[in-house]
């Protein structure tokens, strides 16, 4: 799989670096322009040209994120629909190796884009506005540390990554499924419909299973929490608002804890593994080029 990742990386880095640079350039322009407008304490009116420029740069930033999503999806799709599949699928490697490599590289680029965008903006703010702003950020971090919020933030971060992985794999699965079921390039957009349906089904079953198993695991200290414990945390009314009916929902968090419904969690992990294996099976054994 590492070998295949090497070629995935080689094939995608030009486009992705260009996108990241474009996003950073646009955000620099926005920040510099903003700094210009607020020079001193006087807020000046932006010119027409400035307005257009700002609009354009915002468009570039959003465009970069959207282009990344489409590019990474397209990078999987092309192997199923274009001639390059004749190379990819005659390599003596399994479908799971191909899928694994593509998924990891896609996640890596997405993470790099987000991470570099955020870090760069922090640094830029520091440079433009001096120590005050950096101090505010440091204060914020100190607050998190002082209030034992590390666990919540890390758990939240993991949840975000997990849901990105699940979504990406589900998109790949939908593309692969539409390729083997219809196989017609002209109506290739069918995968979007498949994706939406599957996504809803997974969410629905995840909630239903959560209803059946009303136990939660607190990811900050790995303790099991029963539904009745929530009464103590939030009180009955609040848990009703946060979740579905009498069920507090799949994810519950407060400043002290982030807890997952055990049933939903297991279901979601198994579903993700299943989607991965299913997609691997389809691209290795079922796709007709």
């Amino acid at each position: 799989m590492l070998k295949y990742m090497k070629y995935e990386l080689k094939g995608t880095y030009r486009f992705m670096l260009a996108i990241i640079l474009a996003a950073l350039f646009a955000t620099s322009s926005l920040q510099l322009y903003g700094k210009n407008l607020t020079n001193g304490n006087n807020l000046s009116e932006p010119s027409v040209f400035g307005g257009i420029f700002i609009g354009l740069m915002i468009f570039v930033v959003f465009g970069a994120f959207i282009a990344t999503i489409f590019y990474l999806i397209g990078n999987f799709r092309k192997d199923l629909y274009e001639d390059r599949g004749y190379l990819t699928f005659t390599l003596p490697i399994s479908g799971s190796q191909i899928l694994g490599a593509k998924t990891i590289i896609a996640l890596m680029w997405a993470a790099l884009l987000v991470f570099s965008f955020i870090t760069y903006n922090f640094l830029l703010v520091g440079v433009l506005y001096g120590e005050d702003v950096i101090n505010v950020i440091v204060e914020g971090l100190r607050f998190i540390a002082n209030n034992n919020l590390n666990g919540v933030i890390i758990a939240g971060f993991l949840v975000a990554i997990f849901s990105v992985i699940t979504t990406l794999l589900l998109i790949y699965f939908s593309i692969a499924l539409s390729r083997v079921s219809i196989g017609n390039k002209k109506i290739g957009g069918v995968w979007v419909v498949i994706f939406l349906i599957l996504n809803s089904l997974i969410a629905y079953f995840s909630i239903r299973i959560g209803d059946l198993i009303p136990y939660y695991i607190d990811l900050t200290n790995f303790s099991i929490i029963s539904e009745s414990d929530f009464m103590r945390y939030f009180g009955y009314i609040e848990s009703q608002v946060m979740g579905h009916g009498y069920n507090p929902g799949m994810v519950v968090s407060s400043s002290e804890m982030i807890a997952f419904n055990i049933g939903s969690l297991i279901f979601n992990v198994l579903t993700t593994v299943g989607i991965f294996l299913g997609t691997s099976y389809i691209i290795e054994k079922k796709v007709d080029l």
Partner: peptide, 25 residues
């Protein structure tokens, strides 16, 4: 296998293609 179409990735130069064949076969 030699397919009846160009199967190499468009971003490649010949060196990349050789590297890939060397890595996988």
């Amino acid at each position: 296998y030699l397919p009846d179409r160009n199967f190499l990735y468009n971003w490649m130069n010949i060196q990349d293609a050789i590297d890939m064949f060397k890595d996988f076969y």
